[in-house]
Design a protein around this nucleic acid. Structure first.
Lengths: 216, 216
DNA sequence: TTATTTCGTCAACACTTGTTCACTTAATTT
DNA sequence: AAATTAAGTGAACAAGTGTTGACGAAATAA
């Protein structure tokens, strides 16, 4: 049966509170501080709901945190998959993927801020989950590199080390990006071109690499 | 029975409480979480002193934090100066400076943990202070590179970008190091050799770099 | 319809928090 | 030796915290 939309429900609709809580937490992270510093009560207050209502949706704050984390990475993984599919000559690929990546960061500022602030300061569980995701990205990048014919001569572990170099650096630049004001387009552009240069430099280094030399 | 001769003072000596507070805060950061999540009361408790005694030494917690930050970076800067003075052929220099740096990290675990957990999660003031220090290291590294004759042809801003690449990566590896157990020597060794390889790769990349190419 | 589950509310609890004030006493200065 | 300053203590506060349990209304299922 169809229930019609009356003008204003006195209570939020089914399951709407859950999203209100997640959204409230994100907003508070943006303007107040790390998720770990938020209290259950202020989150519920911001969500426009009484403290006890929280327990209808999450057993405790850390459950909310892990849900938020999952949400953050699910869409990010999806975007990365998309980027990975574009087959282009290396130089164009570097510029292209950096552009789409940083645009994505800009469009999902709150989620990235949330993750950034928990990366080193969160609970062990939280940190572990984030680090696992990052390692996943690294491995996938290494696998991508392994498919390039010109990198045939490089050992698997060296590829891993190179991928880690790229990921570490992009991660750091992401944080730098988040530190900028949202309106600071010039600064953001600068970070982007720095990223491009750095990746290009790494690319040059990879071209010179001999794996036997490293095992020494 | 009250009077003791000279063995144990009933009260800490002059100015001893200040250090007790700083030490207590560091210990709590190691085993509990980011400094920003510590309460004044638990710090004083750990220091074996009543809450109100805190105000005799610091106006509030954030002042303690900034003092701790200063302490952390002062000794680090000193060590970096020392590293920078050793003049060696590049390859040896990479290995050498990475070794002494990571040994220093191991010996000052608490301070690095403190800084790491505040880097992105701390108050704006705290984050700003840390980022300023890091930028300082980057600039100094860029200046060092500028003195190499073989890097004459590289523009100042490209040198800055290269130094940033190095610093970003070492920072990330430091965090990785801190995530390991203190006894995990194998893991620590692995991080070290990864660091060496990555720096060598960057070094190769620098060798191929043409600044005019970058301006496109 | 009626019955049932879902989910937001209210009151209350036992804590912990930062900070104040008046106090004492040790250490230093005069 | 006396006076002064530095630095610890204890009680008290208002505000904020997580969590409980019983209650009621709305949405869904029977």
């Amino acid at each position: 049966m169809s229930k019609e939309t009356s003008s204003k429900p006195r209570r939020p609709k089914r399951g709407q509170t859950r999203e209100a809580l997640m959204e409230a937490a994100l907003e508070l992270v943006v303007k107040k501080g790390p998720f770990s510093s938020l209290s259950l009560r202020e989150v519920t207050k911001k969500a426009g709901v009484v403290p006890t209502a929280f327990y209808r949706h999450f057993p405790d704050m850390s459950a909310l945190g892990l849900t938020l984390l999952d949400e953050s990475f699910r869409s990010l993984r999806q975007m990365m998959r998309q980027v990975r599919q574009e087959k282009l000559p290396t130089e164009r690929m570097i510029r292209g993927s950096m552009e789409t990546y940083f645009n994505y960061v800009r469009d999902n500022r709150a989620h990235f801020l949330f993750v950034a602030k928990e990366l080193y300061g969160g609970t062990p569980t939280m940190r572990g989950a984030i680090r696992r995701e990052i390692r996943l990205f690294t491995s996938e990048l290494a696998m991508d590199m392994a498919r390039f014919p010109m990198l045939n001569h490089i050992s698997a572990e060296d590829l891993q080390m190179m991928a880690a170099l790229v990921v570490n650096n992009v991660t750091a630049l992401t944080q730098e990006m988040l530190e900028l004001e949202e309106e600071d387009e010039a600064g953001q552009q600068e970070v982007l071109t720095t990223a491009e240069k750095q990746l290009r430099l790494i690319y040059f280094g990879v071209g010179q690499w001999r794996s036997d030399k490293s095992s020494q």
